[in-house]
Amino acid sequence: MVQKHQDDGGGKKITLKINDNEYSMVIEPHWTLREVIHDKLGLTGTKEMCDKGACGSCTVIMDGRPILSCMTLAIECEGRKIETVENLEVVGNPLVEAYADNHAMQCGYCTPGFVMTAKALLDRNPDPAVEQIKDALEGNICRCGTYPAHIDAVLDAAKRLEGGKK
């Protein structure tokens, strides 16, 4: 525990738990989680589109919630459980394949953000209705307008998850 009086308000060495890996590094207060994940750790699936909290491209899952890494200060993430899109194929989550099979992307730049938002939804609700999928994904911007295909992809992934259980 860092004692308050020792804290000079500047950068400090903290440990980030990302996808079952621990990264100990000195983090400056003004670094966003997205910068750390993408620029410093090279996990480039976490994309920057708007850089202002308005598009969802930089979504990661933190302690079960889909959050915007561009609006999160990395220094505040000590000890939190963070999952990025790169983890999905590692753990064999069916979303990635369901997205490819359902053509739920065009240029693909926004796609990891959608996929992580959908992952957070399925973690909470493995059998979502169409309206619930819309509720979850309505804050993600896709300039290519791929929206309808996301619904198919998430429903498909939910089905595959169910299949996996049996």
Partner: peptide
């Protein structure tokens, strides 16, 4: 290109 894109690779 789907898995590469959706998987963040």
């Amino acid at each position: 290109c789907g898995k590469e894109k959706a998987g963040g690779r």
